[in-house]
Amino acid sequence: MNPIETATKESILSALNDLIDVVARLRSPDGGCPWDLAQTQQTLIPYIIEEAYEVAAAIRRDNQEEIVEELGDYLLQVVLQSQIAAESGDFTLEEVAQGITDKLIRRHPHVFGDVEVKDASEVRKNWEEIKAKEKGYDPKQVEKLSQNLKKYTETLPPLYASLKISQKVAKLGFEWKDEQGVWDKFEEELSEFKASLSTNDVAHQQSELGDILFTLVNIARWYGFDPSEALQGTNERFVQRLSVMEDLAENSLSEYSLEELEMLWQTAKQRLKG
């Protein structure tokens, strides 16, 4: 049975209407919330990004109750953005919902039309061609790699964008012949970064650092790793070890010498391994 049939459309719409009413009340100049009233579409950008990451984290933990909560927080951002836009006459939540509904129907002609497809890759190909026509491009432009890569640089977190870019370019054959090639490239970029540190050109130094990070992403790709997942794991392990250090320490960590902190770190590391 379709989940939409279990939880009736009426109850779903009722819950959404309640949320819309609450957000409208929060934004009301007459007795609304000062914080919500102070927000703009621009000031809410960090919250949109943060909530998206929290949804992803809940899904990784496979915690269904947490997923429900985090999806609610993310839905709030959609409603709040739409409320702000409606107040200035730009667009409404109705337009947002209708827009994505119409898009899904247009881009799934194999479901809502008479187009036949063989597999998911053909679905993707049709999707990109329809998208190109909608935006006024020649469908052949879909094959232009730079167009898609530019989108990644504008919309994805930098580390993930680097992985997507390197994956797409590698498929063209713009790739090292073997793994030694990518390691040689890393050594080259590391050397250039070290050399840049002897100058006062901060922009150049940052550029060289970016080259190192991009090469590290390529190393991860060569060995089948997800660099974002790898870094996320390191962040979590670091915080776990720091927490154990704080439990082991009798005083604030700021009162210990570097040597003492290193001893606490190694003890915490071994305890977590055990």
Rank of each mutant, 00 (worst) to 15 (best):
Y152Q: 05
E87P: 05
M1F: 10
G99K: 07
L258Y: 01
W265C: 08
V22A: 15
L261H: 02
R107K: 14
K131Q: 08
D178L: 01
E70Q: 08
D247W: 04
R271T: 00
L80Y: 12
D36L: 10
A97I: 15
S166F: 02
W35I: 11
T199Y: 10
E54R: 12
Y152I: 01
S191Y: 00
R241N: 05
E154C: 12
G136A: 08
K103V: 07
E188M: 02
N148C: 09
Q42Y: 15
K9T: 13
L19K: 06
E246A: 15
S252D: 15
P3R: 10
K269A: 11
D30K: 08
A230K: 14
Q232G: 14
V182S: 12
L172D: 00
L149M: 11
Y152P: 02
V115T: 11
M245C: 15
R106N: 04
G32Y: 12
S166V: 00
E260M: 03
H110Q: 13
E208C: 04
R60Q: 03
M245N: 11
L242P: 03
E154Y: 13
M1Y: 00
V239Y: 00
A268F: 06
A86H: 14
L76F: 14
R61A: 15
I59M: 10
V115Q: 04
K194Y: 07
Q83Y: 01
V217Y: 06
V115L: 11
E179G: 07
E69C: 06
R124F: 12
Q180G: 09
P46Q: 09
L261Y: 04
V123A: 07
N17P: 03
Y223M: 06
E208K: 15
V23Q: 04
G274C: 12
K151W: 02
E208N: 03
P3D: 01
S14D: 12
L75A: 13
R221T: 06
F174C: 04
K273M: 13
D73L: 09
V115A: 11
Q77L: 08
E122I: 06
V55T: 05
I219P: 02
L272F: 03
E128S: 00
S257Q: 00
E208F: 09
A220Q: 09
Q141K: 13
P109I: 04
G181P: 02
K133E: 10
A161F: 08
L75P: 10
A220F: 05
Y160E: 10
Q206D: 11
S257V: 05
D138Q: 03
E95F: 02
K103N: 06
E188G: 03
Q83K: 08
I212W: 00
E179W: 00
I105M: 13
I130F: 07
N200H: 04
K140F: 04
S252M: 06
V182W: 14
Q232P: 05
L216D: 01
K194M: 09
D226W: 05
Q266D: 08
E154R: 14
Y256G: 14
E143A: 12
E51R: 10
E255G: 00
R237D: 13
D102N: 03
E236P: 02
E188H: 01
I59P: 07
D114K: 14
K273V: 04
N218Y: 05
G31L: 09
L145W: 09
Q167C: 04
V55G: 07
K177P: 05
